[in-house]
Nucleic acid binder design. Sequence first.
DNA 1: ATTAGCACTCCTCTTAGTTGAGTGCTAACA
DNA 2: TGTTAGCACTCAACTAAGAGGAGTGCTAAT
Lengths: 340, 340
Amino acid sequence: MLTNRQLQILQVIIDDFILSAQPVGSRQISKKTEITFSPATIRNEMADLEELGFLEKTHTSSGRVPSEKGYRFYVDHLLSPQGINSRDVQQIQSIFNDRLVEVEQVIRKSANILSDLTSYTSILLGPDVQRHRVKRFSIVPLSTDTAVAIIVTNNGHVENRIFSLPPNVTASELEKMVNILNERLIGVPLEEIHKKLEAEVLAIFQQHVQSADEFIHSLVTATMHNSESKIFYGGKTNMFNQPEFHDLNKVRMILDLMETKSQVHSLFQPNESGIHIRIGSENKQLGMGDCSVITTTYSIGEDQQGAIAIIGPTRMDYRRVVALLEIMRMDLTQAFTKKS
Amino acid sequence: MLTNRQLQILQVIIDDFILSAQPVGSRQISKKTEITFSPATIRNEMADLEELGFLEKTHTSSGRVPSEKGYRFYVDHLLSPQGINSRDVQQIQSIFNDRLVEVEQVIRKSANILSDLTSYTSILLGPDVQRHRVKRFSIVPLSTDTAVAIIVTNNGHVENRIFSLPPNVTASELEKMVNILNERLIGVPLEEIHKKLEAEVLAIFQQHVQSADEFIHSLVTATMHNSESKIFYGGKTNMFNQPEFHDLNKVRMILDLMETKSQVHSLFQPNESGIHIRIGSENKQLGMGDCSVITTTYSIGEDQQGAIAIIGPTRMDYRRVVALLEIMRMDLTQAFTKKS
DNA sequence: ATTAGCACTCCTCTTAGTTGAGTGCTAACA
DNA sequence: TGTTAGCACTCAACTAAGAGGAGTGCTAAT
């Protein structure tokens, strides 16, 4: 167990390092007003903290730098909630000033504001389209053998996909099919459409139209690989400001990661609420060893969730980011549930 | 006017520099098999070429490096067309192997292959949606005061926008209006919809429904700010490989530029066909002073165009890129006009 | 007109020395 | 016994000087 003095010193060191990005020495610490003991004492304590694994040295005669374990302890035990500057709060509120109707717009703006306020990179996940429910299904023929299927969801999201039409489908048949589809699919979540098509709709189609098999098959392939939730970025190049990312290779790795949808999705905790922090090597993605990721979720309507991630160096201003995410999460949730 | 020997030397220097990124000296040139004269002679010629502005030195006793004027001369007069490796051609053809129905998919894949083959960054512009023509217009109400307007175009593209519904619009009124809209708008290019709405449709609406004004107004604002042509990127971080971009700030500028739609659009020549090359400071965009941009266009259907840009260092392999773009442009044009 | 030879330039790399921030340890002190 | 002053030691960062080498420009010979 750490003594109070050790806790205090650890806190001061991490707070200082987060600001300066420089190894912090005993003399520097002793100058802080809240520190009443001498550099020598501090050196002894630091040696102990290092032995316990909370601090590291970059070389034998350098100041101390927090280790991952140090950061972990810091965020778990030393992170007193921070009040946020009212100017910042105002800026967040400004997202909702101009009555943006579309969810996308709000999220896009949120991403930018978050990256501005943190000076890190933000990634926001929009609502999980797979869980939207069908509001209307329509089919618009384009040529003799192709048509576009359009699904409007309860949230006003529109999915569309071109698919190939079996030969010799008449207009009246098509109309009939669209009617059946609407009867059967309204209220069904997108992720279940293809099951529903095969389980129920196929049988009905077979009674009414020719080439039902092919038709359903076409529709199933068209609706199967439906889009995942959309990804919005803010401040993609903000990490260039951080001294720890002055290395081109690191930056490249992270930028490449952000171009890959599956990798981006892997940054988020599956469905858990609250704020999650992953520090350094706790991130398993290639090239994220020097990053910390703070994630949280927000609600959209009744049963849908979006997610927020902030990516920064391990030397991230955890306190500030956590506070900002807390506000953002609440504001977004409020904005999106009030409405629908 | 340059002598033949000067032309030959200029060509060799640029070809060599494009490959090596190192200033090239007289001895190095004299070793090439096609060069029959001595280093001293070459030095004299180089001094002349420098005086004429085609070459530069990085310092008094360094080898020569092409100047922008040198590159310009090179691409204008020394760029013999290059046959492309059959393996590369094959890879380009592979885009069209698997019958991708959707234009977007083809373009996305093209962007990736282009950046792979060139090892530069590629940007592709999809068709100019504004010039698509309305195939079907429909409106799906979401709540009492909002609805989503959906426009399917002749190419199977789907535009949709949420707009606010005037109070007290009945379902039958809505149906009536959609019918009128379809009668009047089918075949109209998206860019002209709002004009048409105000000029023709408004008058008709006024005869049939209440609150026609508001309704049209809502629709106009919804269709006014329609999406520009979609942008597809390939190899965004490829520039990290180029030694001239080992400077974080340069890279950052370019990456930031690529995040800004208007900036990206400014990279493209307005509508001119053929292949265009802008070298170094011929690019007016901030941070593009060390880049060259090669652009061209391809056709989609009868009257629509997409565009391709390759961004690399001024020390770009112009010959190869031009040859690749030529092929790509033709293949895309062919693929997209055959179909529709 | 071409080229060999040579002095000169200037980048790059290495080595050595200096400085300064910071540590660990010992001994003195309250 | 916990705290602190003092001091020797370490090591990164900076500076200066020198060696090596690639390349040039000029002159004179071919």
